[in-house]
Design a protein around this nucleic acid. Sequence first.
DNA 1: TCTTTACCTTGAGTATACTCCAGGTTTTAC
DNA 2: GTAAAACCTGGAGTATACTCAAGGTAAAGA
Lengths: 123, 123
Amino acid sequence: MTNQIYSIGVFSKKTGLSIDTLRFYEKEKLIFPARNDSNQRYYTDKDLEWIEFIIKLKKTGMDIKHMREYTVLRYQGDATIPKRLQLLFNQLDKLHEEEQCINNNIKFIENKIKIYLHKTDML
Amino acid sequence: MTNQIYSIGVFSKKTGLSIDTLRFYEKEKLIFPARNDSNQRYYTDKDLEWIEFIIKLKKTGMDIKHMREYTVLRYQGDATIPKRLQLLFNQLDKLHEEEQCINNNIKFIENKIKIYLHKTDML
DNA sequence: TCTTTACCTTGAGTATACTCCAGGTTTTAC
DNA sequence: GTAAAACCTGGAGTATACTCAAGGTAAAGA
């Protein structure tokens, strides 16, 4: 099950990221696939696990710069866990703020809609 | 109180948008300030009201293209209110989806944090 | 009046996160 | 063996939403 390796094309399909994006993320130092004798990239299940975490972080709105910070810390081992926790807590704060903001915006739009419904006698 | 007019510099300070942004929004057809004999823009309280609404829409994450659609509809009068409602409902859907998404991400990060806290025996 | 400040336009530059292209090598399928 | 598919690199291009610069006009203060 592990020890499986994937070419960039296959890995692209498994992750849903385009080949170009995978190469871009490598350039941005988010992932470090190994190479074979012909210089072609290959990805392992470890890489898969990691990129899936990266994708998750990205979905939380974290930008590449911060994901790179996280990646660097990860490669330095468990001693960096407190720092990683700090990054995660910061991200959590950001998400809570966004949550607040979205709720305000929902209220704002709902209110505007209400006003329009009154105006058009559709209530 | 009304009938007041503002130069672009003053209006910029009142709205918090930079002068460049105000001119950019005009180019993007989000606002149409009048001009004096010397071709200098002046903004009214009506413009202020409108730009504040635009700023609000922007905060909900609406992009310029959609804000322009809304603006065009507004200038066509009350007959376009149903269409404007449609835009607002779409935006509301988008916001509810984002709310969902953010909540998932909050759970994800919280979970990751929990895992780290276990790892470091900080619990 | 003179000079500083504010304003004008057009067009180029910025940041982010990709996405595409050209030109070349390697692998795979028949 | 050869042709098509997959891979490689470096660099240019895309979209969005501004932001800045250059070169010139207008207005306001001393």
